[in-house]
Simulated scan of single mutants.
Amino acid sequence: MDPERQREIASEGGRAAQESGSAHQLTQEEASEGGRAAHESGNAHEFTSEEAREAGRKGGEASHSGGNQGGSGSQRGGSSEQHAEAGRQSHKND
């Protein structure tokens, strides 16, 4: 099967699981253990400055969109520009 089509199918399944509430939610301990293992094995994703900036921009937009899209409900605030700047600062030593 074409890898792109396989990703599309997996993405559809993931969205359906999230919407129905049957998707597995990692606990903080599970996520921490997985991240530690990924770093130790060399498989962890290292964000580029551009990826961090984009994530900050999206986070800022989501937190100020007005309608909560079913997220955790935490509202830390800050503009998308502030989030992007925080992303840039977190990668100063890259």
Rank of each mutant, 00 (worst) to 15 (best):
E54P: 11
E29R: 09
E29D: 11
S65D: 10
E4K: 04
G56H: 03
E29K: 04
R76K: 07
G21D: 12
E33W: 01
A86W: 02
M1N: 04
R5K: 11
G67W: 01
E81L: 05
A31Q: 12
S41N: 08
S22P: 02
A86S: 08
E61L: 14
L26G: 02
S79R: 01
E40S: 12
H91N: 03
G35H: 09
G73T: 04
G70E: 05
G56P: 06
R88H: 10
H39C: 01
E51I: 09
Q18L: 11
Q82C: 00
S20L: 13
S41M: 06
H45G: 08
A86K: 08
S41L: 15
N68W: 00
S11N: 14
E81K: 04
G34T: 10
H24A: 09
E50N: 12
E30R: 01
G70P: 10
E40Q: 12
R7P: 00
S80M: 03
E81S: 02
R5F: 02
G35W: 10
G42W: 06
A55F: 13
S63R: 00
E8H: 13
A10V: 05
H91L: 15
G70V: 12
H45L: 06
G73N: 07
R15D: 02
S80C: 06
E30D: 08
K58M: 04
H64I: 00
E61A: 09
S20Q: 05
